[in-house]
């Protein structure tokens, strides 16, 4: 049986030739993402702004107008009632009550739910009711944990590799996170705690990609100490290209399956991760690698730790006909 080869053997693509174009592109998209978030904002879920969100699932098509009437007759303040995912499901979003203290959010949610249940005994509810205090904390600690996780990773990579690699990884992660948040601002998909989990998944994947390529760069830096940095990066990227493609594609297939038949609730989550795989694959080639050039990584950056073994191996490799450099 002939096995599938996504990438022909011994590719010799000049990735780094486009690094300045990619840099400009990335900067534009990153700035655009940040600007988008600043101007248009995120559709923050109740996790982060407080208030209540009630989703009601009916057995038949949801009586949107009737529910609007019911809710407005309760006099509980402005409510935004929309279809949610499919015609049977409604989402009722309400802000935090102005008065009544911390417990008020949950009280209003109860009122709405009781009123709808009285008319539609078959309705199934999901209630998220978060007071302002809790949502502030969720926001704060969500941000802190993402930021510290990124920093911790950068420090580890700095210790395992060199400081340039640590900086490279950090910038890459920043790029990926900006891009994802920009996507959520653009689509106005709800940004909630589950999305934070998605961002963390993207960070994890992108990092995995970056580390694999860095690992190969380190190996080649030790092996070919005379080689210029740009061809060395190209060599490393080409050597790992097959792996990059196979891994990315197989995960994308998995995500497509989740996206197409997975439950409604994780749609936002899955689409974010899918996007993140694209971005993560791109950034590990075009962000994390060129940064090493700009930060002045060279053949001297790694003094071999096991002089004899490494030299012997290097000698052997240079002698093989495939290495055309």
């Amino acid at each position: 049986m002939r096995l599938l080869k996504l990438v022909p053997d011994n590719t010799n693509l000049d990735f780094m030739r486009w690094r300045n174009v990619a840099l400009v592109l990335s900067i534009i998209v990153t700035v655009a993402s940040l600007a988008l978030v600043a101007v248009r904002g995120l559709n923050l879920g109740v996790d982060f702004v407080g208030g209540q969100m009630i989703t009601v699932k009916f057995d038949q098509t949801a009586p949107l107008e009737e529910v609007r009437g019911t809710v407005s007759s309760l006099n509980v303040g402005d409510a935004s009632i929309t279809e949610f995912g499919n015609p049977q499901t409604l989402s009722i979003r309400m802000g935090l009550p102005d008065e009544g203290g911390e417990g008020a959010a949950t009280r209003v949610a109860t009122q709405v739910r009781t009123a709808i249940a009285a008319k539609h005994p078959d309705a199934k509810f999901t209630v998220d009711s978060v007071s302002g205090k809790v949502s502030n904390e969720l926001y704060k600690w969500g941000a802190i944990s993402v930021a510290l996780a990124m920093l911790g990773i950068a420090i580890y990579i700095w210790l395992r590799f060199e400081w340039q690699f640590g900086v490279g990884a950090l910038v890459t992660l920043f790029h990926d996170v900006c891009m994802t948040i920009g996507f959520f601002s653009l689509t106005q998909l709800e940004f909630n705690l589950n999305v934070v989990a998605a961002i963390l998944t993207i960070v994890g994947y992108s990092l995995n990609d970056t580390v694999v390529i860095y690992d190969r760069i380190r190996e080649n830096l030790r092996k070919y100490r005379k080689m210029e940095i740009v061809p060395l990066l190209n060599l490393s990227l080409n050597e790992t290209l097959s792996r990059t493609m196979v891994t990315s594609l197989s995960i994308m297939f998995a995500l497509l399956a989740l996206l197409l038949i997975g439950p409604q609730v994780i749609f936002g989550l899955t689409i974010a991760i899918l996007l993140g795989i694209f971005v993560g694959t791109y950034s590990s080639i075009y962000i994390s690698s060129p940064i090493l050039v700009w930060l002045g990584v060279s053949g001297d950056s790694f003094l071999p730790k096991h002089t004899t073994g490494s030299a012997a191996k290097g000698g052997e490799r240079v002698a093989t006909p495939n290495e055309g450099y």
Partner: peptide, 24 residues
């Protein structure tokens, strides 16, 4: 490469576990 990639993820996971709330 496998080792490094996984250790970085462990670092992230531990920090998230310690600092994060519910879903995280």
């Amino acid at each position: 490469a496998i080792f490094d990639a996984n250790i970085t993820n462990v670092i992230a996971a531990v920090l998230m576990y310690v600092l994060g709330t519910g879903p995280i």
